[in-house]
Design a protein around this nucleic acid. Sequence first.
DNA 1: TCACATTTGTCCGTATGTATC
DNA 2: AGATACATACGGACAAATGTG
Lengths: 246, 246
Amino acid sequence: MNKQKTIFDPIKRTRTFEDVSDKIKQLIFDDVLKPGEKLPSEAQLAQQFGVGRQTVREALRLLEISGFITIHRGGSGGPIIKDTILNRISDLFLDAFRIKKVTLAELTVARLEIEKVVLNYVIDNVEESDIISLQKNVAEARKKIDNKIVATEENIQFHTLLAQASRNHVFFIVVESIMAIVGDFLSRIGPDVKTSDNVVSYHEDIVKAIAEKKRTKAINLLEQHLLEVRNRLKPFVNQKKESNSK
Amino acid sequence: MNKQKTIFDPIKRTRTFEDVSDKIKQLIFDDVLKPGEKLPSEAQLAQQFGVGRQTVREALRLLEISGFITIHRGGSGGPIIKDTILNRISDLFLDAFRIKKVTLAELTVARLEIEKVVLNYVIDNVEESDIISLQKNVAEARKKIDNKIVATEENIQFHTLLAQASRNHVFFIVVESIMAIVGDFLSRIGPDVKTSDNVVSYHEDIVKAIAEKKRTKAINLLEQHLLEVRNRLKPFVNQKKESNSK
DNA sequence: TCACATTTGTCCGTATGTATC
DNA sequence: AGATACATACGGACAAATGTG
């Protein structure tokens, strides 16, 4: 996978379970194995690859942690192809926050800049179906607000829909990863209805500006919106956060 | 680690190796275990935690892939606390790009936009050490060119160094992931010395503009440079790309 | 250079927990 | 409830790698 990542890693010690994992990964990349499909059981895989069960176990563990498969126990259980990579990325980002490798300030800056770029691209490439999706999203959010319910889920989805409308997978993957982290923060903070209402208002205006192809207006709205979000999150930046045991 | 991540994930039965992994993670978060320190061997950990060696192995595997430790074999080997989490995130982004079948066209567009934003931040946040790293990079590249050797590796590294100079880890991770794929393409295309020379020239000018804090000049140079790269890659945009074997 | 000790990597056999039918 | 199929976990054993004397 990642050879010569650094020049300092000289010898390529190839561990069998990594070979097995890479082989299965390759089958997924090549669409031979598709999401939803079941992999053979550990015992069968061990036999087919001609390795021990322990080796297969560690290969599957690697794939599970890397977000390629999920594993279920019990009858008719076993490994299933399922893409959870973006969740894994946000998990690792959260770990990175904990060991102070990445700060919330860095994240919000990156988010602001990348979303601005994305929005600019959306104006040029947006299709009718995207606008409908966005309008549907804000309509549902507004409905919740009217019933005094916070619309956190919809408000996060708004930004991933926006990234989707850029018709660029790189933008989509990056934005969705970032929003997964933002969502995690928000779930801990627990926004109130008034805040949620404010967010939805911005989203409504942004959708309108996109539909009318008003580029600078849309970008200004987004910037103002995200700056407000950043200010709301600011108090939590340096907050001592003990991990979630339960 | 990740309880109630999504509402749809019903009950997270706790697996023993996850408990072991979480315990060690917590010790790292709490600075009880610091980078560089050695963990006990698998056998010792198994005894101390009162679990089997296989369970410890899977826990260590999880920590390894999550970027908390590295593992070495042989005498005086074993697990060592080492933070490689950002590399792990980059690897996952790389996987995400592959699994989502990101096209070269999407990649070059996103790269152009994101690097422009990054460079803007570089101008504001660059430190002396960054400029020295960049100068060293182009000097080595120039040396290779003078000897009629292509400097692909240095030319890719240039852009990750640039992202590093933005002093924003999120930018760095994203750019590093993108450049990994770009490098993958270039290694297959095999640029000639003349092309490589052209690239190095741009890099030299960009470094100079950064050192002189000439913002618009630097950004214009980068844009022109990346547009030329895009044009060179254009013939390969629709080429069937089988992913990386090794 | 040559053992030697340590530690991970791999395999086997077995037992238990867990989910499905 | 019982049978089945699967992951999870334990213990023992040997092979391979690697630093040390």
